[in-house]
Design a protein around this nucleic acid. Structure first.
Lengths: 376, 376
DNA sequence: AGCGTGTACC
DNA sequence: GGTACACGCT
């Protein structure tokens, strides 16, 4: 039996929106740690994985692992019936052939229940090509989307070159060629910039902790067997960081996203109960966050993003130069996830599939895309 | 060799946007005075000319005259890759077959370079139909766009009648007829509106000088000898006004734009050199402008336009009544240039092509359209 | 965020 | 040839 209570239906809506064009049917694998989805795109060129951790839900319960075979088209329709800020409850009985979705308006005046048919899907869960990445580029997701959109006007492919200079995106087209160089952002230029920070700072701590987690996760992915283990480890670490300091610079970026989500919840749903999963840690933040501003969440989110904008720069970590060519059509598709995170991470090694990762609070969506060969 | 550095890519974007539907290929004629484009529309009914003076660029260099044969479709694509506030650098080697466009983000963290193929275009540079205009109507460009849009819903043609009463736009359609009368705005309500004016006045003079040239070219057909004279006459007038007051409305508008650009440069690239071209005049404005707000340029521009909006009224100068009929389809197209200037000037004489002119800071875009005959 | 246009699929 | 989906623009 699954019961998962999501604070904002918008998160799920955006996730499904991001992948529905790529994937028509997929299994949501549910277990006590959360929901996972993995699917090849329809043309079997790209791989998508989605993860929503149990901790990202207001309430989460899954007695035993179960796959929910979902048709994205149906789910999209059903999710359109939810308002962005509705609380969304997912329920499925063991071996059920339907998924129940309940939308509760924030004031609880309105309760809508939908039951969506499930299907049996051969879950050819493939091992994720695991790699040790030689280059890792973090950049604002909007910037990535812009570049991909721009270049796809010129040609079908983009060559990505990562060097110490920065990362360069190159496209050759019939009428024109284009190349965009993003230099690595200088560095921690964030100090003393704002007064909002403060509220933020605390969330930063959280964020950073999470970021740390995320980073670790990724690293581990390379040897994925350990991934899970790591996750747990990270969690532990997170708490530790928080306790100790909470002001790690780099993590800050990634954390900020998390912070956003959490902060939002705090503000928007401050009146609500308690976050069970990780409350222990979140409680501390709750108050400070509230102090900041009880106002508009939408605005709040925006501010946060903007705050981050400054902070969210381009950062590059690399062991060696990497040059790869990809189909812009797919990257364009991936960049639909821009709404899920202000930041995107590209992981690359020569001759190995690119990993494009959007991490949001307590979850992520990742895309894998094989490079074109022969730089065609 | 050409190298032209434009403070804001938006200017070029808007220009090309305005003409791309009318013209598919055209030569940008570059010389030390600036860039000029002249082309018949695809159906050879209308003529478009564009001028961007060297003084409108942050930096401008053109060693020797050269034509750049551009496909508007390609250029449109490449320009879409520029953000409105990017600095845009155009470069072409002598006899090059490509035009290089470089976009620098204001923070310079992002540098995008595009190379667009050029083409050889038979520059059948036509003499511009030259006329002695019997009527000159100046009005808010938005007003013109609105009228054209409204009337094109009713019929295919508009009859424009200029009299002392004002200017009247008449359309007869199957389902309905419409006519719009614009009376001349009371009078000089422009005084005291700006302090910036000065610099601009000069460029205005230049433009008129240029206009004169163009007009002269074509004068042959009517009784052109006088045309020039006329233009000059106006010029003299204008100068006179300027000297007396310094607050000539028209000039003011254009000046403001300049001010913006300079201000921006100052702020963003304060470390850079100096504006060579018109610094002498701009300096005066510089300080006051800065005091206001060093912030968003976009906003700044907007403000200026808005500033002008108030002052921009309808003014009519005429020697005799004029009645002409035009295809609304083309006028609708011309009015795409509305974004380039808050003001538009219509120059008309009976049985002679209409001249529709949008002047912006240091340049203009002009359209010529032959009247329909027999008022069909 | 909504509307309109263009592209792709049935 | 029509319908539906996606993308871009206002």
């Amino acid at each position: 039996m699954l019961e998962a209570r999501l604070s904002e239906a918008a998160i799920l809506k955006r996730l499904i929106d991001a992948i529905k064009e790529l994937v028509t049917d997929a299994n949501f694998e549910c277990n006590e740690e959360g929901l996972n989805l993995q699917a090849m795109d329809n043309s079997h060129v790209a791989l998508v994985t989605v993860n929503m951790q149990a901790s990202g839900f207001k309430k989460y319960r899954c007695d035993r692992p179960m796959p929910l075979g979902v048709n994205m088209n149906s789910l999209t329709k059903v999710l359109k019936c939810a308002k962005d800020d509705d609380v969304c409850i997912l329920k499925a009985a063991d071996d059920a052939d339907v998924l129940s979705l309940t939308y509760e308006a924030r004031n609880t005046d309105r309760i809508a229940e939908y039951e969506m048919k499930l299907m049996d899907i051969d879950s050819d869960t493939l091992g994720i090509p695991d790699t040790e990445y030689d280059a890792r580029v973090t950049m604002p997701s909007g910037e990535f989307a812009r570049i991909v959109r721009d270049l796809s006007q010129l040609g079908e492919s983009v060559r990505i070159e990562v060097s110490k200079e920065g990362v360069r995106f190159i496209s050759d087209g019939e009428a024109a060629n284009g190349n965009i160089l993003l230099k690595q952002t200088d560095a921690p230029q964030r100090s003393g910039s704002s007064s909002k920070k403060k509220a933020k700072a605390e969330s930063d701590d959280e964020e950073e902790a999470q970021a740390t987690d995320e980073e670790e996760q990724e690293e581990e992915e390379d040897e994925d067997g350990e991934k899970k283990v790591k996750v747990k480890k990270e969690k532990a670490k997170k708490e530790k960081v928080k306790k100790e300091d909470g002001d790690v610079e780099m993590n800050g970026d990634e954390d900020e996203e998390d912070a956003d989500y959490q902060q939002k919840e705090d503000e928007d749903e401050g009146e609500e109960e308690q976050d069970e999963e990780e409350e222990s840690s979140s409680k501390k933040r709750k108050k400070p966050a509230k102090n900041g501003k009880p106002a508009k969440k939408a605005k709040k989110v925006k501010e946060e993003n903007e705050d981050d904008d400054g902070p969210v720069g381009v950062s590059i970590e690399m062991n060696q130069h990497v040059t790869l060519t990809f189909s812009l059509k797919y990257l364009l598709n991936f960049s639909k996830s821009t709404t899920l995170s202000k930041k995107v991470v590209l992981m690359m090694s020569n001759d190995v599939p690119l990993l494009v990762s959007y991490d949001f609070g307590n979850g992520f969506i990742r895309y894998y895309l094989a490079p074109k060969i022969g730089d065609d």
